[in-house]
């Protein structure tokens, strides 16, 4: 994930620089919040988990290794992991059924759009991702999204979509392969 146009903030954060941490939040919180809204379908849960994720980032900033990926990729990893934890704890409580009903209202809560995050996600990169996803067949994309955003296992996805497990594996492999190739072509240009 490219971050060449941005200054790395996590090294300063690891030194206790609160101002750097504020910048980090302003830069990445919108995409992370969008991720959590997509995963959790609940603004309250998404806000709670976002706080947890940023506090973890504050505490673990010294562990960030720039050679292994961008700051955003690192933050996404932390945030998604926390989101999956929340989904699993929710499954125990049986609250997951409300997701579908909330989905539409959450999508409409998006505010400011790119204006708020123009420095967060390079437009070029986002366009590349969207373009790559657009080229993936709907069935493959759906399987990837259920795994990545909803935290479903292969067998859960197979059950949900009513297709054989082997088919799901193949769809995800083909989808990931195509997306990887398209992104490499786009971002290497």
């Amino acid at each position: 994930m490219s971050s060449s146009q941005t200054i790395l903030l996590l090294p300063a954060v690891s030194d206790g620089d609160v101002a750097a941490f504020e910048q980090l939040y302003d830069r990445h919180a919108p995409i992370l919040y969008a991720l959590l809204l997509r995963m959790l379908a609940s603004p309250e849960d998404a806000q709670e988990v976002l706080q947890e994720a940023f506090v973890k980032a504050w505490n673990d900033a010294s562990r960030y290794d720039p050679s292994r990926g961008s700051e955003l990729a690192w933050l996404i990893s932390i945030t998604r992991s926390r989101g999956i934890d929340r989904i699993r704890s929710r499954k125990v409580r049986g609250e997951r059924e409300k997701d579908a009903a909330r989905d539409n209202s959450i999508r409409s809560t998006a505010v400011d759009g790119m204006a708020a995050v123009e420095s967060v996600v390079a437009g070029e990169e986002q366009r590349a991702v969207r373009a790559a996803l657009a080229e993936i067949p709907e069935a493959q994309r759906q399987a990837l999204e259920l795994a990545y955003f909803d935290g479903l296992s292969q067998s859960e996805i197979a059950g949900k979509l009513g297709v054989p497990l082997g088919t799901i594996k193949t769809r995800m492999q083909l989808g990931m392969r195509k997306m990887r190739e398209r992104l490499r072509e786009s971002l290497d240009r």
């Binding site: 992370l32 999508r107 995050v117 996600v121």
Partner: peptide
Amino acid sequence: PLMLDPVSP
């Protein structure tokens, strides 16, 4: 996640 529209918390 970049496929999503960013949302300000």
